[in-house]
């Protein structure tokens, strides 16, 4: 096998393995408002999520929320930062949060397993 072909095939194989992993990891990060856990407990995250669903009952569907969260292809941190900069913010359970964070908490409240 020529050297160039080997490199291309190896890269393709690596990408085949890595991309779903990255995708799963990204989905996981989206589902859970990771950085917010540095300041809040589980209950607060749930209250925020429930408050979001109260304000936006049309988004009360885990698949739909996930779809919304996956719409943009940036990292979740960037999406949240852009939300704040663009004024895409709202007050949930008293907290000034980005819409994406609200959706993350809503998704968390819908997909909790216990």
């Amino acid at each position: 096998m020529k050297r160039l072909n080997f490199i291309l095939l190896s890269s393709l194989a690596a990408a085949t393995v890595a991309l779903p992993t990255i995708w799963i990891s990204r989905e996981h990060n989206l589902k859970f408002p990771h950085h917010l856990t540095y300041i809040w407990g589980r209950e607060t995250l749930l209250w925020i999520g429930e408050d979001y669903l109260r304000l936006f009952p049309n988004e009360n569907d885990a698949d739909y929320l996930l779809k919304l969260l996956l719409e943009k292809r940036f990292s979740i941190d960037n999406i949240i930062e852009e939300d704040y900069k663009a004024g895409k913010t709202l007050v949930l359970n008293g907290w000034v949060l980005s819409i994406t964070e609200g959706r993350q908490c809503a998704l968390f409240s819908l997909t909790r397993t216990y």
């Binding site: 300041i39 941190d77 704040y84 913010t89 008293g94 907290w95 000034v96």
Partner: peptide
């Protein structure tokens, strides 16, 4: 809003 944008913290009213 600016606390959120900076990633520094979150504010509760």
């Amino acid at each position: 809003r600016e606390m959120g944008a900076s990633g520094l913290g979150r504010l509760k009213l």
